[in-house]
């Protein structure tokens, strides 16, 4: 229907619904009343089972399952036509995708095929006077732009963590519809030759959403093990000040600052870093800095959103413990 919202349900590598899907469903659910439509969730994959109920519990009214071995792994050439057909058939007003590796590839191509437009990496979708408006950061986060659309459907990708998922409600009812897929093998022009996991290296510092950095205040290389633990829990990377690198406590490749790397995470946790200008140059674009330092006068606090005046040796173990508890609770959800 022309008032529906279609959510692209993304799966994790293990084949479960990804957290971003729940966030998208939450956003769609909140948007649905204003549009007066339903929330559809399209899930593409191979061997889909049990996903429908979970999607419904998280807010979907209708789950569209496209189950085909050809959709086992994401391939643009396979996914785009399937989703294109679904959208054409169901005619939603809004299509929401996650700003993920898949969403970045899929959304623009889908929009082009459907003859409509897309807003990428959005943080807000709303309806005003019957029009769908999408807000997204631009200019490296310096500005925000709000878009309206001249074509339909409105397609948007939403930034991870920008939307609150609903509380899971297993009592919710919904429809499940299996859709025929018929992937045209000849239409899949690309071929995946192999995948390489680089888990050991972790997230690249420059790309990390979260960076945990240590400085001279750590007093030795041992402290960095705790930083690594915290960074891993947060899916982030570990950085270091020049002082710490100079002292040989951490590899120079992780140096953040004027002569090191410029990083732009959403969250920067500075532990035992005083905040020399040389270091600050590397994090000038970062909006959310948490500083943990013993010295209440430390320069780093001036640029920090949150300041914890305490000995890192006491703070970090507690922080790690509590973050782990949070993550475990999240995983159970």
């Amino acid at each position: 229907m022309a008032n529906d919202i279609l959510v692209f349900g993304e799966l994790t590598e293990e084949g479960r619904l990804a957290p971003i899907t729940f966030e998208l469903l939450g956003a769609a659910r909140r948007l649905a009343p204003a549009l007066g439509g339903r929330v559809l969730c399209a899930i593409l994959g191979a061997g889909l089972d049990g996903h429908s109920q979970e999607a419904i519990a998280q807010g979907a009214d209708v789950v569209l399952l496209a189950d085909d071995p050809a959709l086992q792994e994401y391939q643009g050439d396979a996914y785009v036509p399937v989703l294109e057909r679904l959208v054409r058939e169901k005619g939603p007003a809004v299509v929401l995708l996650g700003q993920t590796i898949i969403g970045r590839d899929l959304a623009p191509r889908l929009a082009a095929r459907l003859g409509t437009a897309v807003a990428m990496d959005s943080v807000e979708v709303e309806v005003q006077d019957g029009r769908v408006l999408v807000t997204r950061p631009c200019y490296g986060g310096n500005a925000r732009a709000r878009y309206s659309f001249n074509t339909s459907p409105v397609i948007a990708t939403l930034r991870a963590k920008s939307q609150e998922p609903l509380e899971r409600d297993d009592s919710r009812q919904g429809e499940v519809e299996r859709v025929a897929v018929n992937v045209d093998a000849a239409g899949v022009r690309t071929r995946v030759l192999g995948r390489v996991k680089q888990k050991a290296e972790g997230v690249r510092l420059e790309d990390a959403r979260v960076v945990v950095s240590g400085g001279r205040g750590l007093g030795g290389p041992e402290g960095f093990q705790q930083l690594e633990e915290l960074a891993e829990l947060l899916g982030g990377a570990v950085g270091a000040s020049r002082a710490a690198c100079d002292l040989g406590w951490y590899p120079v490749s992780a140096q953040v600052g004027l002569t090191g790397k410029v990083v732009t995470p959403d969250l920067y946790i500075a532990v035992g870093i005083s905040g020399a200008s040389q270091h600050m140059a590397g994090i000038s674009q970062v909006k959310n800095i948490v500083a943990i330092n013993k010295d209440p006068e430390a320069n780093i606090f001036k640029a920090s959103r949150w300041a914890v005046v305490a000995d890192w040796k006491e703070v970090l173990p507690v922080l790690i413990k509590k973050v782990r508890e949070l993550k475990e609770a999240e995983a159970r959800r």
Partner: peptide
Amino acid sequence: LLDGFETVEA
């Protein structure tokens, strides 16, 4: 990719 890369041929 998030945790590595894939080799794609086209």
